[in-house]
Amino acid sequence: SNGDASPAVSMAELDHQAQIISKSHLETCQYLREELQQMSWENFVQDEVENYQRKPREVMWQLCAVKITEAIQYVVEFAKRIDGFMDLCQNDQIVLLKAGSLEVVFVRMCRMFDSQNNAVYFDGKFAGPDVFRALGCDDLIASVFDFAKSMCSLHLSEDELALFSAFVLLSADRSWLQEKLQVEKLQQKTQLALQHVLQKNQREDELLNKLRCKVSALRSLCSRHTEKLSAFRAVYPDIVGTRFPPLYKELFGA
């Protein structure tokens, strides 16, 4: 135990927490490893890339909003299955999901990312950054791809990825939390479980620090997403209002 919020937990408890979170992750990760392997890593051909590039900006934004929303629904389900999450007050469940669900989508993206070809699984095939040109935010897309590439380079196992996702989601420093201490306890326990798993998997000591650095990268990506959405909404208010998924609008204040 180190610090007020840090609970005294046994190894058995950490094992249990790690197992529950890994199980929740596998049950809710949208695509299983086996399914991803069967996708044969097929890339979009040039004609298909150009087809995406010719789409009107608002159509491509809508398509991406739908894909993000689908992925987020699985993250909500993941959160619900984390031991202790549903014991938090509903305000805090919502605060954590509003702030963290897209971050977890970015973390999970490394499972569907082909580092060699710099391509992500999107709309049925693997897409490079050029597929998203019509969105009009090349800088953000490049940063998202760089993030996925750097996550892949850590070669996290599924259980490590699961615990890191839970750690991100349970961030106790989000604004508007009502029972901050409860969230802190849960995040501390998750961090201890992550450390425990890293030690068990004989990972290098600095991996936890590398993962902590990813937290600030994730925040930056998400705030830039919000900025890009605001800029888009300023030009196409009706498109956002009528064609974007309601959950996306709830989460990102559109």
Binding site: E27, T28, Q30, E70, Q73, Y74, V76, E77, K80, M86, Q90, Q93, I94, L97, K98, P246, L247, E250, L251
Partner: peptide, 20 residues
Amino acid sequence: KEKHKILHQLLQNSSSPVDL
């Protein structure tokens, strides 16, 4: 609550990934 209607629903549903 009205502002986060869908999130409330998702949190209260006993959905499985198969249903999503």
